[in-house]
Each structure stands twice: as structure tokens, then as C-alpha cells.
Design a protein around this nucleic acid. Structure first.
Lengths: 343, 343
DNA sequence: AACAAGTTTTAGATCGATCTAAATTTTCTC
DNA sequence: GAGAAAATTTAGATCGATCTAAAACTTGTT
């Protein structure tokens, strides 16, 4: 356990709940047989199985995974770490994971790292104490570079999502940010834009670096020079500052590609605040296609990154990895889709 | 276990990880002593404690809660059920719960019921199998009326949030929808509106019924007659239909109070689509104050319901209930706040 | 130095499942 | 109907912690 984590004991005078022994007695078989029935073993005879199943219902038996886990080593549980659960992108992603796990029967612990490595480490320790079989992780920005190595050492299967720590070769799922960025650039170029800016997250993550690289190369390929790159955090005031800085120089960009929709919407707001019209005075493209992007005015043009699919893929990959720890690794890049709207 | 839930076994040839016995050997004490140190017992002498703690680090020991739970009955885990995790309101709420639990040291299983009682029941069974100590639940719309009684019978502490199943007297936390509704009505009345409509969720939940009651009484108190009530689901097309239906009749309402911001934003969109100006041709007030409400154009006037606080309160109440199952019940109504913007 | 009282440590049983290997029952073959 | 093979069931050990009750130390008092 960690520091200051003395859990206050519950005082429930729990009426002892039914165990496998009660079921065995009720059905007139041995514990071992009940256990086999619980695990859907093909060994038990049909009528025995039915008798046991009836007994299970009769005595109100609830499977005790804590006990099972002890012997079998399987908890039927995984962990998921996201940097910010209130970002609609991650909420959708979680929903995709949940959907896949609901079918599988496993359950997940959700941790919100808020991009704090300490909180992330705390969460990882806690889920390890609970015997999770694997973990889906979008690593906090300043995560220790040792993290992945440790998880391997611990024999803890994992799938990285969105961000990949220094080119690790394990399982990985993310939207294809490079292709998405290229789509955005090409779209703008086809509309006649020549001066384009990119505003990636200031966070030093692979997801940001990848966009910068793709942006630079796409600009070069289109024969355009010196796309501007403005790093910033993803806050409202960053959007303001960015707009101000962009428009102040000579030959200001006529279009900007934002790190995500939240930032793009912030930029739209900033433009309106100073009396400019988004989509006319400055074109804006976001990333993600979160629900509110289609409702904004003007509606946001964006690169849809399909978070739900990313989540579903990640869950599928993790389950596969749990079953086959040594199987070949896989890297899934979910194809983005350009949604052209009004900006 | 349930049907079709044979969990595929992992094949990890787990190098047996360190147990309390390894720690005991390394520190030259008995298992029992190590166990006492782990639980921060005041019984152990200081230097012994330190020796054990060093040994814990040395052997890379990780506390096994599955085993501990077996004897002590405590899993250090709770469950949370929300109807729709992608709704920003619930995402914020989860974040509030997470925050409180992070301090406490407990972890939570998050379930997304999508308002399906079957899925909710499945989730509840699964978390019971894992020995959760309690549950925070926003019951799915058509939940069995027996649900709460069962949970009591199971000795499973719970706190209801937002919706309360037929006037149950257990612990409960929610925004004060009645006060919020009254605030909205009074605000509109003070601006001179006389024909006001309410659009609650069609879902038959206490959260919807409460608004209707408060609306009716607030209208009466203001001496206004016949506020219109339009039930609908909370989709985009409902917003459209509602707008159409509202404006078609004679003496159409001049203001509408929507069930939540998502719906309110939908209404704003619908108005713009038919060339009307929200806030001028029809005033709109939402509920929740989700982040995008302040970014919308025009910015949405709304009743802030402070989901993060609701979550934090619910977690605190549940922890208290776990420690004192028979303690007095508490019902927390978080005061809403009217955020006047442009609509 | 002997005893009581307090402090610290420990052996062994226990929680509720799974696992192994063997026992039992059934079915098949000649 | 005996023996082999297959199908089904089971006893007992085991996982890694906690719990209980007792043992082993310390300290203080006379």
C-alpha cells in the first residue's frame, strides 16, 4: 500500500453470503464440480450442470472473483488511464472501450491522470495491487521513460493510445494524425490558401510531434514555404494570444490548423471577439470532430479522429495481448476523415 | 458468473511475484508483522517498521488486495454507474468522484448504462463479483423498482445521484433542480416574459418530474398561466420538432427552459436554421453550464449545476456510509447558479 | 530477583475459490 | 460379463493475505 492509505474499515455486519460450498450442498455435488460449472467447463454432465445452476439461483450465490483470482491469477479486470476524462474526445474513447469490455465480461478501472506523472504512477500502483490483467494507457506528458520497461518487467500487458513514448514498439492505437494533418493542409491548399499556420499542443508528446512533421512535409510537397508553427497549451487564453500573434505580423497566415476542436473553438471565439469572421478572415480547422463542433457557429471544419473506434481497437488489442503475451505486436492507425463545414 | 462470460485465460508465465513471505524473510520477521506494517498498525516498533519497509522496496513487493479482501472483506473498490459517459455533465461528475477517491485511496469501476436496465444489472452483478464496498448510482430510466431494496438486502451501501427512485429515503446527491427551475422562471419573468415553455426530458425520472413541478409552481407564483410543457428526448431532431411545434401555435412562448445545455444548444441551432435569432426571437435557458455553453454563439444562458461538486459530495457520502452502514442518511442538494449570458 | 503490566511479535487457522491427480462411474468392445 | 477406454466427479493442497490468541520480550515496581 502507499502512504496515507489506511482504508477505513467498513463495519458491515455482513450476513455471510453464499459460497461455492453452499451451492455444492444445495446441489448435492462437490465444490470442485460447482467450480467447473461456474467456469463453463465441458467436463460436467448436462443434468448435473442444470442442477448446479438451479442451486446457484436458489441460494443467491455470487461468484467471488477475489478468491478465484488468488488461485487462477485472473482478475477479469483491466485499467485505463486517460489524461483528461472531461475532454469529450476521451469520454467517447472510454465509451468505445466500455462497449468492447461489456461483451468480453471484463471490467475496467478508469484513472484520470490530469497529465500528472505522480498521479499516473499512483493509479498504476493501485491497479496493480488489484491484479489488473492489463492496461490501456495514454501516458501523461512527462512520464518516466522507464515506465514501459517497468510494465514489461512486471509482466503487465499494455496498449498505448494516442501518444507513444519514444518510439516504443509495443501495441499502439491512435488516429492517424499525420494523414489527418496532410488532409487538412491539402484541403486548405486546394482552397487557395498559401500561408498556413499549425498550432499543436505545447505538450511534448508524440501526437504533437507527429503533426509538426506531417505539416512541414505536406507544406513542402505543396511547394509552400514557412508554414508557421505556434506552440501553446490548449486553453482559452492561448487561443486569444495565438490569434493576436498571428494577425499582428506582416503577411499573416490565412488559415490555421489547431491541435484539437476545443482549441479551434477557442480560436473561433477569439476571432469573433475582435470582430473577425471565422472561415472568411481566417480559416480554422480542428481535430477530433467532437459533438459541439457541428453545432458551433460557424460550424467547425475538422478532421474526425473517431475516438470510439480508437477505444474499441485498443480494448481488442489488449485482450489479445492478455491471451497471448508473446504474440506479434500491432500498431493500429485509425484513418481520419476530413469533415468540411464552414470554417 | 453470467452467461457467455468464460474469460479467456491469460498465458502469462508470470514469474511469481513477491509476497508477504518474501518480505518477511528479507526483513527477518514473521508474516504477521509484515501484515501489520502494511496496514499501518501502531503495534509495531519503529525500527522493525523501517526494516520491513526497506524490505518491501528491496524485493519489489506489491500488495495483493485480492488476497487481503478474502480475509478482511474489504476490496478498497467502489462502483459508479452513469447513464451516458459522453455527456460532459457526467464526465465532470466522474472527475469529481475520481478526485475524492484519489485522496481516499479507493478505486472505482465505471459503468455506462446507456439507460439500459439490463446493462445496468449486468454491471452491478459484475462489480458485486469483485466485492465492491459500495456504489454511486444514477439509476437507468426504467430500473426495476426492486433495485434499491435488493441492494439493501445485499448489504451493498449506495448513494443515488441526480435521480431518485420513487422517493427512496437513502443517501442522495443532486443539483437542486427545483431551485434552478425557479431561478430560470424568475429571471425570465423579470425580463418581461409571460409565455414560457419548459422542455424536460421525456424520461420518467425524478429529475424531470421535479422540474415540471417547480416550473408549474413558479409560474403560478408569478401569476402566469399555462406555461407549456413539451416532453421530448434530448436529441437534435427533438430540438427541431420542439421549435417547430412551439412557434406554430397562436401566442407562441417567448422563452423556453430546456432540460439541459445539450438540448438548449440544439434549440439554438434549430432557431438559427430557420433564420431566427436566439435570445431575441426566443429566449433559451439550459441546465448544467457545460464548457461549450460559454463558447456557443450567442453564448447560452444556463443554470449551472456544478457536476464536479455533485460527484465529490456523492463520493464523500458513500465513503461515510461504507464506514457507518447504519448512520443517518443524508440528502445533499447542491445549489445551482444562474449564469446569465446572451440567450 | 521476582512479579506484574505493558509492548511487540508470532504460529496456525482461515477466507473462497482453483488446481492436480486420482477415484469413480459409464460406455464400449470383444 | 470382463477389461479397456472414456466421461464424470472429487478430495485435498494451494493461492496470499488477515485474524485470533498466545508467546516472547521490555519495563517498572517492590
Amino acid at each position: 500500500m502507499g502512504d496515507g492509505e489506511k482504508l477505513s474499515p467498513g463495519q458491515a455486519e455482513r450476513r455471510r453470503s453464499a459460497t461455492i460450498v453452499d451451492v455444492a450442498e444445495a446441489a448435492g455435488v462437490s465444490r470442485a464440480t460447482v467450480s467447473l460449472v461456474l467456469r463453463h467447463s465441458p467436463l460436467v454432465a448436462d443434468d448435473t450442470r442444470q442442477r448446479v445452476q438451479r442451486a446457484i439461483v436458489d441460494v443467491g450465490y455470487i461468484y467471488n472473483r477475489g478468491a478465484a483470482q488468488m488461485r487462477s491469477g485472473m482478475s477479469g479486470t483491466i485499467g485505463v488511464i486517460v489524461p483528461e476524462i472531461t475532454n469529450p474526445f476521451y469520454a467517447e474513447l472510454l465509451s468505445g472501450i466500455d462497449e468492447t469490455l461489456d461483451v468480453d465480461g471484463r471490467l475496467c478501472f478508469v484513472g484520470n491522470s490530469t497529465d500528472s506523472p505522480e498521479r499516473q504512477d499512483r493509479f498504476i500502483r493501485r491497479i496493480r495491487e488489484r491484479g489488473v490483467e492489463g492496461i490501456i494507457i495514454c501516458a501523461a506528458e512527462a512520464s518516466s521513460p522507464l515506465l514501459l520497461g517497468q510494465m514489461r518487467e512486471w509482466n503487465l500487458p499494455f496498449v498505448q493510445i494516442l501518444r507513444s513514448i519514444d518510439g516504443d514498439t509495443g501495441d499502439f492505437v491512435a488516429p492517424d494524425f499525420a494523414v489527418g494533418t496532410r488532409m487538412a493542409v491539402e484541403h486548405l491548399v486546394s482552397r487557395g490558401h498559401e500561408r498556413i499556420a499549425l498550432m499543436p499542443s505545447a505538450k511534448n508528446t508524440s501526437a504533437a510531434r507527429e503533426r509538426v512533421a506531417a505539416f512541414t512535409s505536406a507544406m513542402a510537397k505543396s511547394g509552400l514555404q514557412g508554414g508557421r508553427i505556434l506552440h501553446g497549451r490548449l486553453t482559452r487564453s492561448d487561443a486569444h494570444d495565438a490569434v493576436a500573434s498571428i494577425l499582428s505580423g506582416a503577411k499573416p497566415p490565412t488559415a490555421i490548423i489547431a491541435h484539437n476542436d476545443l482549441l479551434a473553438l477557442g480560436i473561433i471565439g477569439a476571432l469573433r471577439n475582435i470582430g473577425l469572421t471565422p472561415g472568411v478572415d481566417l480559416s480554422v480547422i480542428g481535430f477530433d470532430d467532437i459533438p459541439e463542433s457541428s453545432h458551433s457557429v460557424p460550424a467547425l471544419t475538422t478532421v474526425a479522429t473517431r475516438p470510439r473506434e480508437v477505444g474499441a481497437h485498443a480494448a481488442t488489442l489488449l485482450l489479445r495481448r492478455i491471451i497471448k503475451p508473446k504474440g506479434p505486436t500491432e500498431s493500429v492507425l485509425v484513418s481520419p476523415k476530413l469533415i468540411v463545414r464552414q470554417t
